[in-house]
Structures are given as C-alpha cells and as structure tokens.
C-alpha cells in the first residue's frame, strides 16, 4: 500500500525535494535547521512508536518465550519443555477442529460475503430517493457490538425460539434444527451470523471505492450505448479491483482471529468438544481460563504465524498487482 499512496499523492511530502537541495543560506544555518528537523521527527514519532512497540510487538515476543515452558502463570516460568506445547497442540483433535473451523470461516466469509456485498454496493450506489436511509440500514449489523449480535442471535436461534416458531408458522416446521447445539451444524450457523454481522463492512469499503470511480467513465460508456449491466461489468468492477482485494485481506485476517461472536453465541459445552471452537477461543479457554499459560501462549504463536504467513502470501500475490495497476494507470 505504501507505493500506492506515494504515486497517488505526488504533490505531498513524498515528492518533496531533499533538504540538501533547497537554496539554503550558510551551512551553519542549514545544520541547525537539520538538527531542528530531527528533533521534531523524533519528538513527534516517539510516543506512537513506544506505545505501539510496547503493547503490540513486545507481548508477541513474550508469547514465544512463555510458550517454551509448562507454566501455570504463578511466579517466573521454570519448567522448560522446548517445543512440547506446540506438539501437544497439533496432537489435540479439539485444536485441529478449531483450525478446520477457522478455515471454514475464512473461505466461507470470502465466498459468501463478497458477492452479496458487491451486489448490495452496486445497488446502493445507484442514485435513487432514500438511498441514504437504505445505506444506513444496511450498515446497522456492522455497527453493533459483537457481544450484542451474539446474544441477539442466541436468543433468536435458541431451541423452540423465535426462528423455529417462524419456520413452523410458515409450514416449514420440518426444517427446525438444534441450530447452536448440533455438533455438525453449529459452525455453519456461526458462519451465517458472522456473515450477517460483517457483510456491512464489505459494503462500506466497496461504496467508498465506488465513489472513486469517475462519473465521466460511466457517462462515456452509456453514450457509447452500454447498458447498466455492461457498465458495471466492464467499467466499474475492474476499477474496484484494489478495493475488493483490500477487503479480502482484512476479512481474512479478521476471520483468522475471530473470537467475540463465537464466544458469546456458542454453548461452552459445544465449544469444548471442538464443534464451535476457533483458534482464538481455544487459546483463551486453555490459556486464560484453564490457566495453562505456557500452552495458551504456544497456541497464540501458532495463530500469529498462520495469520502472518497468510498475510504475506496475500500481499505477495494479490496486493502487488494493485501497486502495479496504480503505476500503469498513472502512466496513461
């Protein structure tokens, strides 16, 4: 994204001439000026760097250290076990279930939310009366707290609850299921809830991207006789590529560490059997609540490495194209 920003803002500081080239006065003035500049740079960035390093990077380093011990969290860790915690995790069928569930959520979210969000964004990008209200309503699920969403759907989907009553009322009583207790079904129910919750985020991003598509292009295409569908397919969609890929990236990272909705909605007993566990709930259940701190930290490192590798691969193979695209478009 770095180079994208640079090419996009040729006016800003990015293309500013180096200080040395400025027509400055005597060397002593210039060196005082340079020193001053460095004071400002250091003074302004240090608070952000300190907070960021201390609360984001340092803990991750500690996670790796703790993961090498069998440790209940009291006193300093002393029982060094090497990589045993990692071996244990990959031998635990519950953790493997959690991995599988994360995979379902990552790919399920991309495959289901993407097309829905694209359709809704194109719809809400048309100009019609009341569009603002419809946009607001479509964003509602995304604004709600994860906890609120979890409790809401838990109440709706509970056994013989509202949803089952609605199904029976329209004569589909045969479809009634134990939505949140059936071990094979629960992960799909959760995927549905997550989709309902997060599709609004994709819509917001896509609408922001759509508003960057120059109106003139649509007009030119329509003057050439293109239909609305043809314009969307051949003009709008290609220009939305970068936005779609950024959303895919954010969605993937979010799905890998999903916790809140799963934790609140799923029954603990079902979660402990693995049917509705994710890496993050497994980590908190074992590390924090069962006080297996060394083991929990090993799971944290696994979660981190998986997310990081996925992110790097994604950057390497998909986001790079955006940067190239930005440069070629500029050259035109």
């Amino acid at each position: 994204m770095t180079s994208t920003n640079q090419t996009r803002n040729p006016v800003g500081g990015v293309s500013a001439p180096p200080t040395g080239l400025r027509p400055a006065g005597r060397p002593s003035v210039r060196s005082a000026e340079t020193r001053r500049k460095w004071y400002e740079i250091i003074g302004l960035t240090t608070p952000a760097i300190v907070v960021y390093v201390m609360f984001v990077l340092v803990p991750m380093g500690f996670a790796f250290y703790y993961s090498l011990f069998r440790w209940r969290g009291v006193g300093p860790p002393t029982d060094y076990v090497g990589f045993d915690n990692y071996v244990l995790a990959f031998q635990d069928p519950i953790f493997l279930d959690a991995l599988r569930n994360n995979a379902i959520i990552v790919f399920g979210s991309l495959l289901v939310q993407g097309p829905i969000a694209l359709g809704v964004a194109l719809l809400l990008n048309r100009s019609f009366r009341g569009r603002t209200v419809f946009r607001l309503l479509a964003f509602v699920p995304y604004v709600l707290a994860e906890v609120t969403v979890g409790i809401m759907w838990k109440l709706i989907l509970t056994d013989n609850g509202t949803f089952d009553a609605l199904l029976r009322a329209v004569g589909l009583g045969g479809l009634v299921q134990a939505w949140l207790a059936d071990l094979d079904l629960v992960i799909w129910t959760l995927l549905f809830i997550l989709t309902w919750k997060y599709v609004g985020f994709a819509i917001i991003l896509l609408l922001a991207g759509l508003s960057n598509v120059p109106q003139e292009l649509n007009e030119a295409a329509s003057i050439d006789g293109a239909s609305w569908w043809q314009i969307q397919r051949h003009v709008t969609l290609p220009l939305l590529g970068p936005t779609i890929r950024i959303w895919m990236f954010l969605s993937m990272i979010g799905s890998l560490q999903v916790f809140d909705v799963i934790w609140v909605t799923s029954v603990p007993a079902v979660r402990s059997l693995g049917a509705s566990a994710t890496m993050a709930t497994y980590m908190v259940d074992n590390g924090f609540f069962a006080r297996l701190w060394g083991y929990g930290n090993a799971v944290a490192v696994i979660l981190f490495v998986i997310s990081f590798v996925a992110a790097l691969l994604f950057q390497r193979f998909l986001l790079r194209r955006d940067i190239q695209g930005a440069i070629t478009r500029r050259a035109n």
């Binding site: 770095t2 960021y52 984001v56 340092v58 991750m60 560490q257 916790f259 944290a300 981190f304």
Partner: peptide, 23 residues
Amino acid sequence: LYTFFTLGLLFPAGAAILPLYLM
C-alpha cells in the same frame, strides 16, 4: 518507519492477548 507501522495491520491483535494480559 511507515512499513513498521503498517505491519500492525497484518498483525492479529487478538493473538497477543495472553502475553498482553501477563504484561
């Protein structure tokens, strides 16, 4: 420095929650 900060976007904040608690 900019890349250093953007790394945080790749970084699952939730993953560091246990060591963060300990710290």
